[in-house]
Design a protein around this nucleic acid. Sequence first.
DNA 1: CTCCTTGACTAATACGCATTAGTCCGCGTT
DNA 2: AACGCGGACTAATGCGTATTAGTCAAGGAG
Lengths: 354, 354
Amino acid sequence: MAENRSARVRRGRPRQAEVARLAGVSQTTVSVVLGGNKQGIVLHPDTTARVLEAARELGYVPDPAARRLAAARNNLLGVFSFTATFPTAVEHSYYPFLVGVEQEAAARGYDLVLFTGSSAGAQSGTSGALERVRLADGCLFLGRHIPAGELRRLVEHGYPAVHIGRRDELDGLAWVGADYVEATAEVVRQLAKLGHRRVMLVREDDDAPASTDRERGFREALATAGLAGADPVVRAAHPAAEITPAWLRDRYAEGVTAFVAEETDTGAAWRALLAAVEGAGLDAPSDVSLALLGSPPADLAGRPQPTGFDIPRAELGAAAVRALTGLLTTGEAESPLVACAFRPGSTAGPAPVH
Amino acid sequence: MAENRSARVRRGRPRQAEVARLAGVSQTTVSVVLGGNKQGIVLHPDTTARVLEAARELGYVPDPAARRLAAARNNLLGVFSFTATFPTAVEHSYYPFLVGVEQEAAARGYDLVLFTGSSAGAQSGTSGALERVRLADGCLFLGRHIPAGELRRLVEHGYPAVHIGRRDELDGLAWVGADYVEATAEVVRQLAKLGHRRVMLVREDDDAPASTDRERGFREALATAGLAGADPVVRAAHPAAEITPAWLRDRYAEGVTAFVAEETDTGAAWRALLAAVEGAGLDAPSDVSLALLGSPPADLAGRPQPTGFDIPRAELGAAAVRALTGLLTTGEAESPLVACAFRPGSTAGPAPVH
DNA sequence: CTCCTTGACTAATACGCATTAGTCCGCGTT
DNA sequence: AACGCGGACTAATGCGTATTAGTCAAGGAG
């Protein structure tokens, strides 16, 4: 009778009020029951059961916005990347991180909201785009270049945020990152153990923390191994043009027997090294040893595995989620560094006897 | 005096009410001004200016939760994949869809909620797992095998859902799909034009709509070209075992000069064909022509491009988003078929003169 | 000198949920 | 007989914004 303008016909999701009607109780009771009755209100077991049943029957799911507004939490974690999360060029994709994020979030009972701010943020560039993340209880950020101003606002207002990748310059912003210093040092140690006395690092001309850390680990390990000498680091803004066969032959003649390249989006430094070695008529690993501080670009998958290390992207994503949920619950996050795994590969071998 | 528990001290961000106080107007006016006054209320320019100034001074930013609550609209689209978790491999076939989904969603001002089999079902076992998607205003579904029962419930309740890939069996479920019938027909027409009189289709033993459609397009095009004859379709449950060099040589001897393989996750049919041709000592395209009804598996990227067609995955994802937003706004979705692009490739050539 | 307009705003309310402060009833106490 | 008390709920309110109905002067029409 009252049934004809009933809830089933109504377009849109069911509300607590509908559940309440069906169960014959008040909206308050529904909220209490579905909220797990944390306030310890005395409820008859039958009532609880009826509410639960009604909720199931209607397929009730709480509205995240309302929940958030009522000063509770959503169980939503945001992911915001400063470039498209799913770019057309798979090499720049954040997908591997997302896999870890996804799993860890699921395990902890959170759903993920992918904020699509930057990708086709046609209009944006205007401020305010970042504010949307407040819909979620907390948010993960990733990308090379961050809009520091906006992010700072969020953080200063106490919004729980975790950046994937080291980010010290923004005070108070939590982050998780790969331990490039240690991973790079390990690569150098391996090369030293193979008898190499002179090792060079080829890096791109960029001051991202990821690059700086590698250089630091590189220099520290050299020093520790007593291999300090002429400046062992080359910055190449355009690796393809600067790391030529001629250049490589010169270094080789000077006694450099191992070359280490930084990994970047494009893999330019590594490509240049490979080309230069080939162009110089040398062979790796018999003549010179090569190592890559990261994973090879996807299109080089067929080539022999480079000696170096793998960035545990999925693990980083998971660690980020742990840090974020830590912020949400206890207020503090755990240790931010994740170790990289050494990858033996086959581009490095014993130093040749000159 | 009332000032000492003032807004500046208050932790958190300014509300419209604070802006209103500073500008000496009502909260309503603030909302109207900052909302761009879409309702065309007459406001004195000075008032508008004062409000804007006050908002700037306080650094006002609207609360997305409140905004969405008031608008009764979350601007959230769900993405649900039926695999246990988001597939780890970037080269997995879902990735390209996501590219289009993200772009189109961003362009339309929607954010994405990512659901996976695991996240949705976490504790509750399987039943009710899908209900979680109600959190979003509408949801995209993708995957080969769908839990029909649960999805039906959602659709019957009027929940806006769009499946990526044809899905007729579930009445009322909207979908977008690639036009395999036409794309396959085009491939056959091209082969016919090259002089092939006998063409065979190798497909896996699966009745997914994607397979059925290709077979239909294949048979129709053959008929139209007047090439009907002995049964031109082989179903292979284990292509590697059934499509052998011997089998291929037999067909070749019978006058079959072109082979067409269906594309699937594994690419098994195509791999088997390639191997069989090679094993039989034949060459494509000089002896036999080969075509692939889809894109080659990633690990065959180095091989010559197969003749065939490309599934416009990103475009499909975008079309799905358009369909879903169509459902949300106007209540009806647009045309569900997306055309595939013919790919000339280099595995098909003129029929040999027998 | 009333009776509309128009301009310029504002009061009230809805959105869906969580929470705080009750209400109501039946049973035992002094 | 008035009183208290625990059990079992519910009414009322707040969160921050967007909207829908007003309100209230100051002019102009009649």
